[in-house]
Design a protein around this nucleic acid. Sequence first.
DNA 1: AAAACATATTAGACTAAACTAATATTAGCA
DNA 2: TGCTAATATTAGTTTAGTCTAATATGTTTT
Lengths: 103, 103
Amino acid sequence: MAHLETESLAKQCEEVSELLKSMAHPTRLLILCSLAEKEKSVGELVDEVGISQSLMSQFLGRMKDEGLLVSERNGRLMVYSIKDPRVFRVLKSLRDIFCRRTK
Amino acid sequence: MAHLETESLAKQCEEVSELLKSMAHPTRLLILCSLAEKEKSVGELVDEVGISQSLMSQFLGRMKDEGLLVSERNGRLMVYSIKDPRVFRVLKSLRDIFCRRTK
DNA sequence: AAAACATATTAGACTAAACTAATATTAGCA
DNA sequence: TGCTAATATTAGTTTAGTCTAATATGTTTT
């Protein structure tokens, strides 16, 4: 049976898949990689990533709502950075798995 | 500038996000977790996960097309298992990050 | 206070994914 | 060979996500 186990596992999968959904988009993943390096303003991210200001703002807003990012005003700039420590850890794992030279 | 770096990073993000898209769905993640333990028939997975046979077959077919799974006929059963080793590694990382007791 | 800059919001079009229900295929068994 | 069990496929509905274009908000500078 193991139904109780499966049920709690299902719950965990739901939680994890929430985070994964945010990361499972090429542009958002790129944004997160960029922010993992250091915090950045919206404009910097737009230049670096190459999408419209509007879409960038929507992506950032969404990830902020989900608790992955925080923003802080700095003069006329809005600076975003990664809030959820799990994001760093997932990014690191992904790098290990996908980007390591396996020589 | 760092535009060349960013470009190759963008490519990698695209590739990685392909895999993540498959995993970023609560039911598919649950299926993968279950298959990570051991290979299983469609019927077993239906019982365990609790979705319709049709939807299960569609999920499995999709993940097979994407190269994550393989299937092998065993009598009247069709047995699925994880093919892509990166799936195991991502699952393990996710467990480490989300499921470890941090005591 | 007006102008200019940086970011956010909104509405709408477009695309893709999830799900259901019905039916088709295929393999083993009577 | 016909029957049943197991899985796959298809079409259609619904829901959700992506993206663009236009506009609004808020901040600094003059």
